[in-house]
Design a binder for these strands. Structure first.
Lengths: 329, 329
DNA sequence: TATTTTACTGTAAACGATTTCCTGACAGAA
DNA sequence: TTCTGTCAGGAAATCGTTTACAGTAAAATA
């Protein structure tokens, strides 16, 4: 494999000159430039990033921490991150933590050892203390889920108002027995959405029964089904469901179908995220739309600015209620 | 930031000794080792991977080329790759090509510039000539989709027999007008599955009408719906569908529902991949199961062996027909 | 003509590790 | 006592770049 030295020898110039040509510096005479370019082509030379990385002490790699790549919610955000990052010549190292602290450690170590220039954390399960400690020496931002009372910049939506909006919609349809499939309240977003749910019910003069809230361990179909099973066993029949994720809502939908009940006639369902699947279910799912792609874009922009030493501000993006068949009629 | 030199000075030993401690070499006396370890802790030193990478000319990074991260089929494979890679201390750089040659170039360049040690290509759209050329100098393997008549090792399933199995199943249920939603025949798997489809029909004495095959540009819901629209407009009504991906099948399912037809009573549907969502549809989807996670495992093992200069053999994994509601009754 | 710019280009020092030699000390054998 | 072998640990080369600094010749200025 040819290196910069070989090219320099072949072209009859110094290493420095080759480097200058490589980096498009203008202080190289046209003739020399041509000579060097010829040598590069002749030798089929490709500059090694390893040398450059060491010299510049950067890798142009971004760590993206997610709990689970299979969740379509994250896929869209990653799309957004990737597109923006690529434009600034950054690549992303996708890190699936699987809610496993060991995994998390592997990835944080990667950053500690300077294998990455910055971290975008989307993992609600991330150990907050570690994150805050890491943030002292490294560039970190949080995307979607964030840590209250920390100085780590974040981009997210107004979870409380989004949940409020969803529940208001169900109330406006005449529902009063509205169940809520939440995730663990150790997550900021879960607490915020629960607050929105309760505020909406409260304003309507309904007090949320504890039976009406199901705390799900994971945000997937199976847990949605499980939640629904519980609700269907209640003495007092609920007539509507609001779930903090479309996957949960779709699981609930499935379970309702399995019990020969109809959505929305027997039970109305509202999800959260507007993942692609949510328009493919039968009936299609009413849901809160999060601008996931945009959130990814912004997250990437933020982390790159942070890496370059700029100050970055928190960003709250808009959400929207998308009304579809699961709450029609 | 402390470097190895600082640690050496602090511990009163040479750089070499610190490195030896770092790498767990046994030719260091216990006292010295302790001294060095103390210094490391005191200074809060983390060895930089950049230096090591340059010296060892490796990055322990694997490029994984996929067309689209949002497709759950790929998520599962990536899961498998990642778990196996991590065990060998490799990390994966996820590369979404988006079927965009420019993107593809960015990622291949990354490998050319030695930012990655090997490539796992899962992108059917990848430019075959480039891939073959790259394979001369770099470690590459293909996963799922592969290039016929090249020497690039691959792991995949027996697509023809899998399709044959699916269609046989429909035939055994009494169907004879079986449509096929394929993707572009420029893909190896598409040609192979079409061959399986035709072989099954042929053996049953049915000749596949060209109207019965729809060539989809992308493997997503929308295209499945589109395909189904075409089929529903045919004069001669088809009674069963076999689609080369679950997403297409689910799109078809949706369109059938939209037309107030019933699955499987009016039209039976078989998909391909057994993605998670395929058990959440109404009715649940009969599908061909691919061992996606395992395929990822094996792909990672193969590329790592290849990087280490070993010979690797192609692998063909088993598939299985999973019969569910969409072909019941 | 003498002096100062300007435009290139080369030299060599980083960057931060790993690893190949090499040396010195010490133990055991002759 | 001398020789040989083993072991711990140091010096320095190396990986492939970038870049500060210096140097030189030609052009511009006085």
């Amino acid at each position: 494999m040819p290196n910069i030295k070989k090219v320099a020898e072949y072209a009859g110039v110094s290493i420095a000159t080759v480097s200058r040509v490589l980096n498009g510096q203008k202080t190289v005479s046209p003739q020399t430039r041509i000579k060097v370019e010829k040598a590069i082509k002749q030798l089929n030379y490709e500059p090694s990033i390893l040398g450059r990385n060491l010299r510049n002490s950067e890798t142009r790699l971004l760590l993206v921490l997610i709990p689970n790549i299979s969740n379509p919610f994250y896929s869209k955000i990653i799309n957004g991150i990737e597109n923006t990052a690529l434009k600034s010549n950054y690549n992303i190292l996708l890190c699936e933590t699987d809610s496993n602290p060991e995994r998390e450690k592997i990835y944080f170590d990667l950053a500690r050892k300077k294998m990455a220039d910055g971290i975008i954390s989307m993992d609600p399960q991330v150990d907050k203390d570690t994150l805050i400690e890491m943030a002292e020496k490294h560039s970190i931002i949080q995307c979607s889920e964030y840590t209250l009372n920390s100085t780590i910049p974040y981009v997210t939506i107004d979870n409380e108002n989004a949940a409020y909006l969803a529940v208001k919609h169900l109330l406006s349809l005449g529902h009063s027995k509205i169940a809520f499939i939440n995730s663990d309240v150790k997550f900021t977003y879960a607490r915020q959405r629960e607050a929105g749910y309760k505020r909406a019910l409260g304003e309507a003069g309904i007090d949320a029964k504890s039976d009406w809230i199901y705390y799900s361990q994971e945000l997937d179909f199976v847990n949605g089904q499980q939640a629904m099973k519980k609700f269907l066993n209640l003495d007092e029949k609920i007539t509507a469901i609001f779930a903090v994720s479309d996957l949960l809502a779709i699981g609930a939908l499935k379970e309702i179908n399995n019990n020969k009940l109809s959505v929305p006639d027997d039970i109305a369902v509202v999800g959260f995220d507007k993942i692609e699947f949510s328009s493919m279910t039968n009936p299609t799912l009413t849901t809160i739309e999060q601008p996931m792609y945009k959130m990814g874009n912004i997250a990437a922009k933020m982390i790159i600015e942070k890496i370059h030493g700029k100050e970055v501000e928190n960003v709250i993006l808009d959400h929207e209620l998308v009304i579809r068949e699961s709450t029609l009629g």
